[in-house]
Amino acid sequence: MDTTERVLTLLGLLQQRRVWTGPELAERLGVTPRTVRRDVDRLRTLGYPVNAGQGVGGGYQLGPGQALPPLLLDDEEAIATAVSLLAGVGGEAGLRALSKLDQVLPARLRQSVKALSGSVSSFGRERSFGDPAELMTLARACRDQVLVDFTYSSGPRRVEPYRLVASDKRWYLFAYDLDRDDWRTFRVDRMSEVAARTWRFQPRPAPDAATYVQEGVTSRVYKYQGRFLVHAPASVVRAAVPPSAAIVHDRDDGKSEVVTGADNLDFILMHVVLLGHEFEVLGPPELSARCHLVATRMLAATGFVPPAGEIDPAR
C-alpha cells in the first residue's frame, strides 16, 4: 500500500475496535511499529484525535471530538448504513442523517442506495427498527427482482418480493406467493432463514404496496371490517389513530371516513367511541345492529327511558 491508502486503512482499523496495540497494527498493515507511529501522527495532523496508552492494556485508540471527520465506510458498510437509516430511524433525524451520508458516498454507491430506497414504502409516521442484514437482503431482492425463500410461522415460503413496507410498529414484505398463487403480506419479524435466489422473475401488475399492506393490517385479516363517518377532519383523526389500527380517508365536508377491523364488533365500536367525536356507522349491517344494541344497554344503565319506539331493544 502507498502512504495514503495505508493511512486510510489504519483509520478504518481504529474505527473497528476500541484499542489496538502497535504490533497488532503493524502486522495488519504489513509495516514496522515505527511506521505505524508515523501514520498515527499523520492522522493527528488531519484532525483525528488518536490517543496512545502505555503498559498493559495500552495501545492506540481513536478518541471522540468535534475535529473527527466522517466515518470511513467500505461499500457494504455504507449500503448497510443507508438501509438501516431507511429501515430504522425514520423521522427528520433519519432524513438528515441519510442526506449527509448521500453527500459523502461515491456515485456508484449513491445509485445503489437510491435503488434500494425504491424498494421501501411506508404508511406510518415513524419506522420501527429491524435487522439491517435481513432488511438489506429483502430490499436487494426487491430491487433485483429475484425470488426469495424463507421460513414463516406457517411453514416454508417461496415468493416474488415487490416491496418492503414499514408501519408505525413493524416491517412487512409485500410479495406474490408462488405456492398460493396470490398476493400476500408477511411480517418480517416472523421470517427466518431468509435467502435471495438467483432466479429472476418478470414483475406482474401489482396493487400499491403500502395501501395493500395497510388494508390487510387494519381490516382484511379480521373477521369484521367496520366503516364509519367521523365528524372530524381526517388530520385530527389521524393524529389519534395509529396507521396500523385504521385507515382514515379525507372527506370534502370536513369529516372523515374510518375503516378498521377486529374479531369482535364491540372492539371496533369501542375504539371509535373513544375518539370523542360524533360518528355514523356506514357498514356492515351487523355492526349497525350491534351499535344499536350497545346504545340501548348504555342508556338503560343510566336509568334513562327513551320514548316508546325510539329505540327497539330487540335489535
Results as ranks from 00 to 15, higher is better:
181 D>Q: 03
122 S>Q: 14
224 Y>A: 01
8 L>F: 13
227 R>G: 09
308 A>G: 03
156 P>M: 08
232 A>R: 06
204 R>E: 00
4 T>S: 15
269 L>V: 04
78 A>W: 03
245 A>G: 03
312 D>Y: 03
148 V>W: 08
162 Y>H: 15
48 Y>M: 03
113 V>K: 03
163 R>Q: 14
174 F>T: 00
187 R>D: 02
9 T>W: 08
87 A>W: 02
217 V>T: 08
61 Q>N: 08
239 A>V: 07
96 R>I: 14
186 F>L: 02
37 R>G: 02
245 A>H: 15
157 R>Q: 01
60 Y>W: 15
268 I>A: 07
122 S>Y: 02
45 T>C: 03
140 R>C: 11
43 L>R: 01
147 L>W: 02
81 T>C: 06
180 R>L: 00
7 V>L: 09
179 D>S: 12
107 A>L: 06
159 V>K: 06
214 Q>K: 13
242 P>L: 12
220 R>S: 01
156 P>Q: 05
34 R>Q: 05
5 E>T: 12
290 R>V: 02
189 D>I: 04
264 N>P: 03
298 M>C: 11
284 P>M: 04
7 V>C: 07
118 G>I: 11
298 M>S: 13
310 E>K: 06
38 R>C: 00
295 A>V: 05
236 V>Y: 14
176 Y>I: 01
94 G>E: 10
49 P>I: 00
147 L>K: 05
157 R>T: 00
137 T>P: 10
241 V>D: 02
105 L>S: 11
137 T>E: 13
136 M>W: 06
20 W>Y: 12
162 Y>F: 08
64 P>T: 09
102 D>W: 08
194 V>H: 06
305 V>N: 04
36 V>W: 12
86 L>A: 15
132 P>F: 01
221 V>M: 08
21 T>C: 00
126 E>R: 11
106 P>M: 11
